[in-house]
């Protein structure tokens, strides 16, 4: 049987691929990635420590960590993290839901596309920060205007992702579904949804990334708490270590939320996972 032969070959190549990766597996890539920043930090720390540089505008790592420790010991840090996180989550949820619904509507019904897509593309061309004055006039300077701005940022990548994914669905798989007389709803549930899921997850992650971007802009609009506030405060009071500390927290939170999102969606994409491995 030809199947057995090709199977055996595939199995063998898979084993050798495993062997190849195992040599580099484990901590090495992670450690390698850390070498440069750690070395730069150590050099800068040493220069400031021995008085060769004053480190007032570019704080050494120790100063940054001291600031982080202080902020966290007073509990202040968590108030800011909480405020920012809630804004991102609320804006992301609103933007993702809207983007998904509009994208699905336009992707599924051609007529809606001709009607709505040109306007949406026009709105997309507006730099989102340009909305800020209008949103403040409409929604005031408190939470609603901030969350709306974040939602606008999240909306477009999700909308475009859903639309593109629906357009890229393999027409033949839909025909197989039709041959077995799936209802329109059945086609959506059993064929369209699983087909678009991988691209949808990518779009959600892009949306989340933009959500983190826009929360900073939103908090620059004037906020009494939040990581963006820490940035502005650090600038106004000349505390660069506080600015860098807030940037670090942004980076860590962005990574963690992205990781949680991909972890939550991973069970639906197991088949794609194996695709990546087969490559």
């Amino acid at each position: 049987m030809p199947a057995d032969g090709s199977l055996a070959i595939e199995a063998r190549s898979e084993i050798s691929a495993l062997r190849r990766t195992s040599r580099f597996a484990g901590a090495y890539p992670f450690v390698a990635g850390l070498l440069l920043p750690v070395a730069l930090g150590a050099v800068w720390e040493a220069l400031v420590y021995f008085g060769l540089a004053n480190g007032r505008l570019v704080p050494p790592p120790s100063a940054i960590f001291r600031t982080l420790a202080e902020l966290s010991s007073t509990g202040e840090l968590y108030v800011h993290i909480r405020a920012t996180l809630l804004r991102v989550l609320a804006g992301f949820a609103a933007g993702a839901v809207a983007g998904t619904l509009v994208g699905a509507l336009i992707g599924y019904f051609r007529r809606f596309r001709q009607l709505l897509d040109p306007s949406l593309q026009g709105l997309r061309a507006v730099p989102s920060i340009a909305w800020v004055p209008l949103f403040i006039l409409w929604f005031g300077i408190f939470e609603l205007s901030k969350i709306t701005l974040i939602a606008v940022g999240v909306f477009f990548p999700v909308y475009l992702g859903v639309l593109g994914a629906i357009e890229a669905v393999d027409r033949k798989t839909v025909e197989v579904g039709r041959a077995f007389r799936l209802s329109p709803l059945g086609l959506v549930r059993r064929i369209l949804l699983p087909s678009i899921l991988p691209a949808y997850v990518v779009a959600l992650r892009q949306g989340l990334g933009l959500g983190w971007m826009f929360v900073v802009a939103a908090e620059f609009m004037g906020a009494s708490e939040g990581l963006g506030y820490l940035l502005v405060d650090g600038q106004q009071l000349g505390k660069p270590q506080q600015i860098v500390a807030a940037i670090l927290v942004f980076a860590v939170l962005g990574q963690i939320t992205d990781w949680i999102l991909s972890l939550l969606t991973a069970p639906f994409l197991r088949w794609q996972d194996s695709f990546a491995r087969a490559r």
């Binding site: 393999d170 025909e175 041959a179 077995f180 007389r181 087909s195 088949w271 794609q272």
Partner: peptide
Amino acid sequence: PSARCGIVFQKHALFPW
């Protein structure tokens, strides 16, 4: 379309999921 006709396409069109 009818289930009485099985169809095989040039590109397999299997459900990848």
